[in-house]
């Protein structure tokens, strides 16, 4: 078997040959899906992210063949497609496991135990960050904040939520995955493989019975305030805030003019040159 240029490191001399095409039947099937994706957008290029999810659902990662396919469908160069595919972290660049186990190690989860979970999983599985177990089942990664901080520490498997984990529960989870035992997320549907997940991300609804309803309406933490408000649990204690704070009623709502704040928080005033008298940013270069 030949080694690819990326495995050899820097390649000198011969440029890489074009990627091999998909077999005809695969290509025909993917083209049908691709047409459906492209039809969702007023401009075909918008279909690129879902198309990359689609080719990932075919092979488990984004291959050169997959990128060539996207380029062909959208009339782009492979360089343009590669630039996009390498920007986003959800596109895998090499073969990996059926189950992507991501441990949140952003500050809050890390402090609450995410670091300890990640460390114990690395030891338990004998792989480092981004590594895949020998049986090809599990790829371990640390991930950034996944918007479930009230359920910390959080582990994601194929982007389904496993809330309030401990090192012991996480080890049991990966053991179950490797043994092929059914695994149920704390919120969300029974796990599908990484490829099947990628197809949902490409915009094709999960057709499995009960998949949408699985996991119930909301997780326990999501209901914490509601239960208090309905008097279903009694409040620990209720206090009055001290006086103070700008709660004085009156005064008009600030009415920004379009030039002052046309769009949002990151309007240029906030991010332009440090010395307004001597602007150094692009605004000055381009002029009005």
């Amino acid at each position: 078997m030949t080694t690819s240029s990326s495995e050899r490191g820097v390649s000198l001399g011969m440029p890489e040959l074009p990627a091999p095409a998909y077999p005809d039947d695969v290509r025909a099937r993917l083209e049908t899906d691709a047409r459906e994706i492209v039809a969702r957008y007023p401009d075909s290029r918008s279909a690129l992210l879902p198309l990359l999810h689609l080719v990932q659902s075919e092979e488990g990662h984004v291959t050169r063949t997959g990128m060539q396919f996207c380029a062909d469908v959208l009339g782009l160069t492979t360089a343009e497609v590669t630039a996009v595919a390498t920007f986003y972290t959800m596109y895998r660049r090499g073969p990996s496991g059926d189950y992507q186990v991501g441990v949140c190690t952003n500050t809050l989860c890390a402090v609450m135990g995410g670091d300890a979970i990640f460390e114990s999983l690395q030891e338990h599985l004998g792989v480092g960050n981004g590594g895949t177990t020998e049986d090809g089942k599990v790829t371990l990664e640390h991930i950034e904040c996944n918007a479930a901080c009230d359920f910390a520490p959080v582990v994601m498997v194929n982007w389904e939520f496993f809330d309030n984990q401990t090192p012991a529960s996480a080890k049991a989870l990966v053991d179950d995955l490797r043994a092929g035992r059914p695994v149920t997320p704390t919120r969300g549907a029974p796990l599908c493989t990484f490829k099947e997940t990628a197809r949902i991300l490409a915009g094709f609804p999960d057709e499995r019975d009960g998949a949408v309803a699985a996991g119930g309406s909301a997780g326990p933490a999501s209901l914490a305030g509601l239960k208090l408000a309905k008097g279903e649990v009694s409040a620990a204690r209720v206090v009055h805030p001290r006086d103070g704070g700008p709660h004085d009623v009156g005064g008009d709502v600030h009415d920004p003019s379009p030039t002052e704040h046309l769009s949002s928080h990151d309007a240029p005033q906030d991010t332009s040159a440090s010395d307004p008298a001597h602007p150094a940013g692009p605004t000055a270069e381009e002029g009005e």
Binding site: C149, D150, F151, A152, P220, A221, S222, L223, A224, G225, L226, L228, A229, A235, A236, R237, V238, V239, P241, G245, H247
Partner: peptide, 22 residues
């Protein structure tokens, strides 16, 4: 008591913590 608490704007962290167990 981590979780979602829907309230009028202007509530304080002290109030939220005290009602939810601190």
């Amino acid at each position: 008591g981590p979780g979602q608490y829907e309230a009028p704007l202007g509530i304080t962290l002290r109030q939220l913590l005290d009602m939810s167990g601190g």
